[in-house]
Structure formats: structure tokens, C-alpha cells
Design a binder for these strands. Structure first.
Length: 608
DNA sequence: GTTAGGG
DNA sequence: CCCTAAC
């Protein structure tokens, strides 16, 4: 191919610049959109709960055997594996610890049913739950036949480590928020990153341990929107790339990451990998927030309130349940890099508190319908040894009246939510809301728990937490103000809020003004349609919000607009003379392109 | 990173 | 405006 400098010799007013049209891209073949989803879809983080024997057993049974050492403590370890190992993932593990002396390691990454011995002390009869008052004393037996008590009154215990700067020890929080949790029953073979929340007879303490601190990820790139092409382009592209990733399959990403990590044992590779992503999300939307580090600690992948897959066996009249997990909504936490790990932990704690506020009850869902009558027998409810337990699900609910907090948040304007949940004078700044399922109608308020997540993958992996993009669902955001780590705020945000931010949101529409159109027309007249980057630099170099893609799109619409009747046009009317110029330039450059094509072909033929 | 085109 | 294949 031969490129020749050509000087445009007429036809348009003010055409001066030499034109070096590029070869038409029309030759390019467009393949089928093979939208590979290498990207990540965020998976929900869940609190995995293992429960055995009687599900609805009570809220505050003080009696019974578990009295003494049975203060079941759970350790939730939030691992943010360092750059060496799974930098993108925030792993949350909850290890059931029956006694205070329980060695968390022993049960690490194991299924609940993998450690029956630890739970043996709990294999005892448990008192009835109050809300299940009339029910029979049914036993819920896990696969391994150990019985665990479901504690409806969760206590979260945040333990500070040294890094907290003396902030110390153990804070105990009562999870009072109502919770619609996901219940996983059945096989969960990848519990590595899951949060197990076995419920014990006594108040189950949850020890949140954030081990690693990867300050590197999500460090905000506070670079200005430089006009340097390299930066500008990269940022936009990066942003898009980031956005691109968001809606995709989460697990694939996870797997990719793991593969990546396998093949890149050196931290360097990983680092660059993260670097990329890091740069991505920060720009454009958070330029002013250089100091803020974001962490997504929990994620709830969807509005579904529970995930379940019941496995059952029938022995005589017993129906066995294995509840693998309860889901919690995604939580977002933002803390400055200068914040301590301890403050981060507290942030997480606050976020969890905000979500799990309230005394919890377990709900039973059969075939999508909630069984409210606690006096009904399992048989009457359609739960029997013979029934298909696939249709059985459990939910965590607050004892508070009305809809779950998730729903409440969804339906609560952001400001209200803030007011409701914020506390302290130094309320951190909430960076906004999360996009996600805005386009999707929120689930009916009263039927949240009827949403059954059937995705097997999420059942298996849902507990994994990564620093991925939010997908759907309500989330909690916690921001820790710099140097003010003491006051933390957990603010669940309304996903339906009109304020959009973060990633994955469409840019606000900014219609081209007439002057912009004129500038565009002029540039295209001069440079030709197709050299959009040059057009951008020539006429919109100062308009950071106009990308060359935007200009290309605008030209496309201008051509269309010019070719339709004025009555059909919408928006701010474009002067007809401009439209005429558009048509003229379009015709000219189209012809030019055609000529170029022919020329190229001739050249090609000549070469052969 | 750019361009082209469909959505 | 978004998305993304094809360069």
C-alpha cells in the first residue's frame, strides 16, 4: 500500500490541511461477537453457615448444653492475599470455632461437615426457637450427622491487631440489622474463600480478622486528566476496560487470576496485572479522591436472598438438611491509605453491622414460597424425605417487622439511607452509589426471600470475595476518613439512587452544542471522516469529555440527521447550513475513500 | 491505542 | 453512548 500525501483541492470551505486518509476499514471483517467473558463478575460474599438439626431453633435459648464453653466463636478471616498470591481477591473465611480454644487452623478451608468432631459438643438437643414455637422438635442433621445450633443472634467480634495502633482488642457488635441471607445447602466444595457462619447455641461470635493489607490495589490514580494522548487514551480505555470487566463472569476472572498467579509466581507479573486494573478504575470518576482506598469486602452477587441446594436423605422420617451458607450483601469499604488496618477492620465491622443489624431469624422457603407458619409440619409444608429438596431454601431474616433491610435500602433514597445509618459528626463522605441493577426492577419488597439463586456456581463460589466490580444488589459502603479512623460509618447505599458513580455507569449525556458541531464539521472537512483522533486533537483537544469515539459517533448521527427530514430531528436543532456541510463532507470523504480503495486495489494488483 | 460499526 | 472486533 502506498500512502500519498494529497492536498485537498477544493470543495470545502477552509480546507487547507493535507489529507492523509487511512485505508478504509470497511474491509475489515466483522466477526461474530464472541463476547468472551473473561471478565469478572463479582461474586457475592457470603457468610456460610452450617447448621444442623433444628433450623429454627431459637433465638435465645439460654439453657441447654452449650452453656459453658459453647460460646461458639467464629473467626472470619479476611485475607487480602498479598501481591504474591491472590492480590485481587479479598478472601473471607470464617472458621467455625466451637470453643475458644479451638484451633482455627484445623478447620481451615474445610467444609463444615469436614470437622464434625469440633462440633460434637453441639450434637445435642437444642431448645426450640421462639418463633418456631409450635413446631416439632425436628432435627437438622448435616451430612456428617453432626448437629449444630442456629443462632439467630449473631455477634460480630472485631479483633484489632497491633496495627490498629493500640486500638485494641475485641469489639463485640450485635448484629441487629435484619438480614436476608442466603442459605447454602448441599455441597459446597470450594469453601476456601467462603465465610462460614456456623451458628451455635450461644451467641456465635464472629471474629473478623483482616490479615493482609494490600494498599497497593485500588490506590487511586490521581493523575489529572492529562491531555497527553497517551494518558488520556489510556485512562479512557482503561476505564472502559474496567467497565467491561464488571458485568462479566466473576468466576472466570477468579480462575484467570489463579492461573495468572500460578504462572506468575513472581510478584512482578502480578503487580503489573494489578497495576493495569488499578489504573483503570480510579480515573475519571474519582480523580478527587486520591487518598481513598477502596475495598470491597463483601459482595452479594444478586438480589436473591439465599442460595440453596439442599441435600437430603431420608432416614425413617428424618429429613436431613445441609445448609452451606447464608449470604450477606456486598459491602463496600473505603478507607484512606493512611488508615490503619485496625480502622479498616472496624470499617468492615461497621459495614457488617449495618447489614446484619438485628436479631436474625431463619426463614424457610419451599418452592419459592416462604413458609411462615412455624406450626406447620415439614410434611404439610411440602418438606419431606420424599420431596425434592431442591426447592427448599432458607433465609436469614431479621426479627424486626417488615421487609428486609436490603429491600429497605433499595427503596430508600440515598440521603435517607445516609441519615439513617450515618453516625457521628465526622461522617465520612460517601462516594456515591453503585450502579448495578438500576435497570432491573427491584424485587418486590415482600418477596425478597423468595428469590432463589439457582446458579450453581454461586452456590459453590459465592463466598469468594474479590476486589471486583459491583454487580448487583445492595451494598454497603464504608468510608473511613483519614486520621479519623475512630468514627466509622457503614452506609448501605441504594442501588436505585439517582446518583451514579463508580464504574459501570453510563456517562452523563452531554449533547453536542452547535458550536461543537461546527467545530466537528470543520475538522472533518479538513481532515476527513475517519481520522477521529486527529479530529479530536484539532477541534476538541480541550474537551476532555469528548473522545474521538464520541466525535465519530457524533459525526455518524450528524450524517443521519442531515439525511432525514427536519421534522424527524430531535434535540437542539442543528443549523441547516451545518448539516449541509456535513452532507457535503460526508459525500466527499466517502468518495475519497472509495477512490482510495480502488487505488489500493490497483496497487495490489500491480504488485502481483 | 484507533477505527469502524452495530447496539 | 456503549461495546468491541479488527487493526
Amino acid at each position: 500500500m502506498v500512502l500519498k500525501k494529497r492536498i485537498y483541492d477544493g470543495g470545502f470551505h477552509g480546507l487547507l490541511a493535507p489529507v492523509i486518509p487511512k485505508a478504509p476499514r470497511s474491509l475489515r471483517k466483522r466477526c461474530l461477537h464472541n463476547k468472551s467473558s473473561e471478565d469478572g463478575e463479582i461474586c457475592g460474599v457470603e457468610l456460610l453457615a452450617a447448621a444442623a438439626d433444628k433450623l429454627l431453633q431459637e433465638q435465645e435459648s439460654e439453657s441447654s448444653t452449650s452453656s459453658t464453653g459453647s460460646k461458639g466463636k467464629e473467626q472470619i478471616s479476611i485475607h487480602e492475599e498479598g501481591a504474591k498470591h491472590e492480590p485481587l481477591q479479598v478472601k473471607v473465611k470464617v472458621k467455625p470455632v466451637i470453643s475458644d480454644h479451638h484451633d482455627p487452623v484445623s478447620g481451615a478451608e474445610s467444609e463444615l461437615d469436614a470437622q464434625p468432631t469440633n462440633l460434637d459438643p453441639l450434637l445435642k438437643e437444642l431448645p426450640h426457637s421462639e418463633d418456631d414455637s409450635g413446631s416439632d422438635h425436628a432435627s437438622i442433621v448435616t451430612n456428617s450427622d453432626f448437629v449444630k445450633k442456629v443462632n439467630t443472634n449473631l455477634i460480630m467480634e472485631a479483633t484489632e491487631d497491633k496495627q490498629s495502633g493500640g486500638l485494641t482488642s475485641v469489639k463485640t457488635y450485635n448484629l441487629k440489622d435484619r438480614l436476608e441471607a442466603c442459605v447454602h445447602t448441599g455441597v459446597l466444595n470450594k469453601s476456601y474463600t467462603s465465610v462460614h457462619l456456623p451458628f451455635y447455641k450461644d451467641r456465635g461470635n464472629v471474629n473478623i480478622n483482616i490479615r493482609d493489607d494490600d494498599e497497593k490495589y485500588f490506590r487511586y490514580n490521581n493523575r489529572n486528566n492529562t491531555r497527553l494522548r497517551a494518558f488520556g487514551s489510556r485512562s479512557r480505555a482503561g476505564y472502559r476496560r474496567m467497565r467491561k470487566m464488571m458485568p462479566s463472569r466473576y468466576w472466570k476472572v477468579v480462575q484467570n487470576l489463579k492461573e495468572y498467579e500460578l504462572t506468575n509466581s513472581t510478584s512482578g507479573g502480578i503487580k503489573s496485572f494489578y497495576h493495569k486494573r488499578k489504573n483503570i478504575c480510579m480515573r475519571e470518576r474519582f480523580q478527587a479522591d486520591a487518598a481513598i482506598k477502596r475495598r470491597k469486602l463483601f459482595h452479594h452477587s444478586s438480589k436473591c436472598s439465599y442460595v440453596k441446594e439442599a441435600s437430603s436423605e431420608s432416614i425413617s422420617n428424618l429429613v436431613k438438611f445441609s445448609i452451606k451458607s447464608f449470604k450477606v450483601p456486598e459491602l463496600f469499604v473505603e478507607v484512606p491509605e493512611t488508615a490503619t488496618v485496625g480502622s479498616l477492620k472496624r470499617s468492615v465491622m461497621e459495614a457488617v453491622k449495618a447489614v446484619l443489624h438485628g436479631t436474625l431469624h431463619v426463614g424457610v422457603v419451599v418452592q419459592g414460597k416462604k413458609v411462615r407458619d412455624g406450626n406447620r409440619t415439614l410434611q404439610q409444608s411440602g418438606i419431606s424425605q420424599n420431596c425434592n429438596l431442591e426447592t427448599l431454601g432458607f433465609t436469614l431474616e431479621s426479627s424486626l417487622p417488615e421487609a428486609s433491610p436490603f429491600l429497605a435500602r433499595e427503596e430508600t433514597p440515598l440521603c435517607n439511607t445516609k441519615q439513617r445509618l450515618s453516625r457521628g459528626p465526622s461522617n465520612p463522605i460517601i462516594k456515591g452509589c453503585f450502579s448495578n441493577s438500576s435497570s432491573e426492577p427491584p424485587p418486590p419488597a415482600t418477596s425478597l426471600d423468595n428469590y432463589l439463586e439457582k446458579n450453581e456456581e454461586s452456590t459453590t463460589f459465592a463466598a469468594e470475595v474479590t476486589t471486583q466490580e459491583p454487580v448487583e444488589d445492595s451494598k454497603a459502603l464504608v468510608v473511613v476518613p483519614p486520621l479519623n479512623a475512630e468514627v466509622l460509618t457503614a452506609v448501605p447505599l441504594s442501588e436505585n439512587s439517582t446518583k451514579r458513580c463508580e464504574f459501570s455507569h453510563r456517562r452523563t449525556r452531554r449533547p453536542f452544542s452547535v458550536s461543537e458541531v461546527e467545530a466537528l464539521v470543520e475538522a472533518v472537512e479538513t481532515l476527513g471522516a475517519g481520522r477521529w483522533r486527529d479530529v479530536k486533537m484539532r477541534a476538541f483537544n480541550d474537551a476532555n469529555h469528548r473522545t474521538y469515539v464520541d466525535l465519530k459517533d457524533k459525526w455518524k448521527t450528524l450524517v443521519h440527521t442531515a439525511s432525514i427530514s427536519p421534522q424527524q430531528r430531535r434535540g437542539e436543532p442543528v443549523p441547516q447550513n451545518l448539516l449541509d456541510r456535513v452532507l457535503a463532507a460526508h459525500a466527499y470523504w466517502s468518495q475519497h475513500q472509495a477512490k482510495q480503495l480502488v487505488k489500493n486495489q490497483k496497487t495490489l494488483e500491480a504488485q502481483m
